[in-house]
Design a protein around this nucleic acid. Structure first.
Length: 364
DNA sequence: AAATGCGACAACCGCATTATC
DNA sequence: CGATAATGCGGTTGTCGCATT
């Protein structure tokens, strides 16, 4: 039983849009708006296009005030910070970058930023297609993985792990490697994850006291997927940039930071931006990492990878694991207080975040 | 000069969610 | 309140152009 198609694929044109089609669509929407019905729109203006295709074309290309290319360092900064924090929620990330579309950001991440941060070239798509007989997540391949595992059926289970989660683990570990190199790890003063603040107002996004937050949540996911019977350690290839330690053993099964008696928490900050700079807390290291200012000197990635504590609600209650758990927590935990102007997340220290800040402005 | 590899971007596909009847 | 339609979203694929062999 297949899903009913949204349009008649036999009569609908596919592929790149012509300037004439663009002009028709833009002229109509400029004059009449979308009319609230994308499905009917192409028929109204005589376009042989699927309504979804029209919508996508409008949102990603024709809509006013769209910026293409030339991401600024600040934008990269925001993308990386948010990706580490929330994963591939491209629409949410896009909402923090006026004029950018989720598609643009997604493409930019996949083609540039990911390589910049993970430090390895992605195999070409052709190569990936050629290797389809032995499916393996890209990020795992990029990590040089696939050769050794003590978890038995690891190749199969690893293949099931989302690449987003693995990438975030990699980013997490790279940053932790940096922190170790800077001596943060040895001082029992865990570094903070980036504190993101939207560029336009005083509302902040995420930071995590005692660090390690949401990316660590992916470790929980990885742990569960690699071995449902928790408590074990896993041989796992160390991701990009760590190739020289590719046989390192990572102890994912130590109930993470709990062993250290550290309850990681999510907190949000309402600290305002200062003088055009980002109020990113300890994100300087991330910034330097992004722009390779300290990589060469780091002598980095020695001393092992610190434990990765799980993420908890501010009350120490629900442990936040994978993306889904984060969503669930965001939606359900009692720090999430409805207000008349939209949802508001109550944060540690009395700060708060209006969730409507994440509303996309597509129709403006 | 032709073939191949690769990066970048646009567009498509299908599932999830939301709105409407 | 359930069914259906519309929309939103993220992952994936197609295509083009440049670089390299």
């Amino acid at each position: 039983m297949g899903r009913a198609p949204c349009c008649d694929k036999a009569t609908v044109k596919k592929g790149p849009w012509s300037p004439e089609e663009d002009a028709k669509l833009k002229a109509y929407i400029d004059e009449n708006g979308t009319g609230g019905n994308w499905i009917a729109l192409p028929q109204k203006i005589g376009l042989k296009r699927c309504g979804k295709s029209c919508r996508l074309r409008w949102l990603n290309y024709l809509r006013p005030n769209i910026k293409h290319g030339d991401f600024t360092e600040e934008e990269e900064h925001i993308i990386c910070s948010l990706y580490i924090s929330i994963g591939s929620r491209w629409s949410i990330i896009a909402a923090q970058l006026p004029g950018r579309t989720d598609n643009d950001i997604k493409n930019y991440w996949n083609t540039k930023l990911k390589k910049k941060l993970l430090g390895k070239r992605a195999p070409s798509r052709r190569l990936q297609r050629a290797n389809q007989d032995a499916p393996m997540p890209y990020s795992y391949l990029a990590a040089g993985g696939g050769s050794a595992s003590s978890s038995g059926n690891a190749s199969g289970t690893t293949a099931a792990l989302s690449s987003s989660a693995l990438e975030r683990i990699q980013l997490h570990m790279r940053l932790q490697g940096l922190y170790s190199a800077f001596g943060c790890g040895a001082s029992n003063a865990p570094p903070q994850w980036p504190k993101l603040e939207p560029p336009t107002d005083a509302v902040a996004m995420t930071t995590v006291s005692h660090g390690h937050s949401l990316a660590a949540a992916d470790v929980v996911e990885a742990e569960q997927q690699l071995n449902p019977s928790a408590g074990a350690s896993y041989d796992m290839p160390v991701p990009g940039g760590f190739e020289e330690r590719s046989a390192s053993k990572l102890g994912f099964g130590s109930a993470a930071g709990e062993a250290a008696g550290v309850a990681s928490t999510v907190e949000m900050s309402s600290a305002s931006m200062v003088g055009g700079g980002f109020g990113y807390g300890h994100v300087d290291e991330l910034y330097d990492f992004l722009y390779s200012k300290q990589l060469a000197a780091a002598g980095a990635f020695q001393g092992g990878v610190p434990p990765l504590p799980e993420l908890q609600c501010p009350d120490g209650g629900a442990v936040v694991g994978a993306d889904e758990k984060f969503s669930t927590w965001m939606a359900s935990c009692d720090h999430y207080v409805p207000t008349t102007g939209g949802q508001q997340l109550q944060l540690q220290g009395g700060n708060s975040m209006n969730l409507q800040d994440f509303v996309l402005g597509y129709d403006q």
